[in-house]
């Protein structure tokens, strides 16, 4: 049977690749969150492999055995209404499997949504914002900003604050953990950490138009010492990020990597607190005031642009 062989070969290839002839990025994690997800994935693959094997075994056995060509001419298939007992069995077993996977899912989802376990240190906050088709990384603590590349210290939790200057993007570093959307009117939080130094690739995973394919960035994880040294180097060499410069960076297109002193957060604050359920009146007023200031600023921008 061609079907059978092709499936077996297919399954064989899948299993071979998954179990590590050559590590796939998602299954080769370099941080605690990525490791949790990779474990969940492997658990689900093995559980599902059992299901697939059982179904396939039954399938091939039944199809082979009851082919008309293998039966006598006068065989008349019986009328069978069904069997409550059997039907209960194949309802109950899937329920058990789903229940097991549900437990795994709930535990692991809470785990990857919070600061990684065992990381006591204060998280390093990095604002990662996307614009067509780049990533801007602002380090408020260190007061520097990078474009299209990311340096992080190992063994320290990183709290990414994600938002976008354009379409919905998805911030994803496969080897460190799962992705999350960066959107224009709110800030999402993604907790990651790296425990192995090295270079990892990151990208926007959510389609954002023409330049989407190249909207990637490099992540370098290094020891805290090296990280501090890198910060010091930048402070002494990089130019300061001005508002004009930042507006230039926001123009749609692709850019190489670049580094600046200061962050854009001061003159272009992230869209935080847009999601309060019932904003108090003063709060609303405050937001309104902020908006007015922002509008004024944007008017100014227009003027400056006109001068150019």
């Amino acid at each position: 049977m061609k079907l059978k062989t092709s499936f077996l070969i297919g399954m064989f290839i899948v299993v071979m690749v998954l179990t590590g002839c050559e590590p796939l990025l998602v299954l080769d994690p370099k941080g605690p969150q990525g490791r949790t997800t990779a474990n969940v994935i492997m658990i689900s693959i093995w559980t599902m492999a059992i299901v697939v094997i059982v179904v396939f075994a039954m399938y091939f056995y039944i199809v082979r055995k009851y082919l008309a060509s293998r039966q006598s001419k006068d065989y008349v298939p019986p009328y069978i209404e069904g069997s409550v007992k059997l039907e209960i069995i194949w309802t109950a077993i899937p329920i058990l499997i789903v229940a097991f996977l549900s437990v795994v899912t709930v535990i692991s989802t809470y785990k990857v949504e919070s600061v990684p376990e065992g990381y006591e240190e204060e998280p390093l906050v990095i604002y990662a914002s996307s614009s067509n088709w780049k990533w801007h990384f602002s380090y408020p603590e260190q007061d520097i900003e990078t474009v299209n590349y990311l340096f992080i210290p190992t063994n320290r939790p990183i709290e990414f604050k994600l938002y976008s200057f354009g379409p919905i993007s998805s911030f994803w570093i496969p080897q460190l953990g799962g992705q999350k959307y960066a959107m224009a009117d709110m800030v999402n939080t993604l907790n990651l950490a790296a425990d192995v130094p090295g270079e990892y690739s990151g990208r926007n995973a959510n389609f954002t138009g023409e330049g989407f394919a190249q909207q990637t960035f490099n992540v370098t994880a290094m020891s805290p010492k090296e990280f501090d040294k890198w910060i010091r180097d930048i402070k002494s060499t990089a130019e300061t990020l001005t508002e004009e410069k930042f507006d230039e960076l926001l123009q749609p297109g692709h850019l190489g990597q670049s580094t600046y002193k200061g962050t854009h957060l001061e003159f272009s604050p992230p869209p935080e607190n847009h999601h309060s359920k019932e904003p108090l009146k003063d709060n609303q007023e405050e937001i309104k005031n902020q908006k007015i200031i922002k509008d004024d600023l944007s008017n100014d921008e227009d003027h400056s642009n006109m001068k150019h």
Binding site: L3, F7, V26, T36, T37, A38, V40, I41, S44, I45, M48, V51, V52, V55, F56, Y59, V98, L101, V104, T105, S108, T109, K111, V112, S170, W172, P174, G177, G178, Q179, K180, A205, N206, F207
Partner: peptide, 27 residues
């Protein structure tokens, strides 16, 4: 032909349904 191929499609659907793992499969 539907039964085995759909089974594979279906079980990967269950895998995708697991939120934490979906963070890696999504998109």
């Amino acid at each position: 032909g539907f039964i085995p191929i759909f089974t594979i499609g279906g079980v990967t659907g269950v895998m995708l349904g697991m939120a934490s793992a979906d963070y890696q499969y999504h998109n």
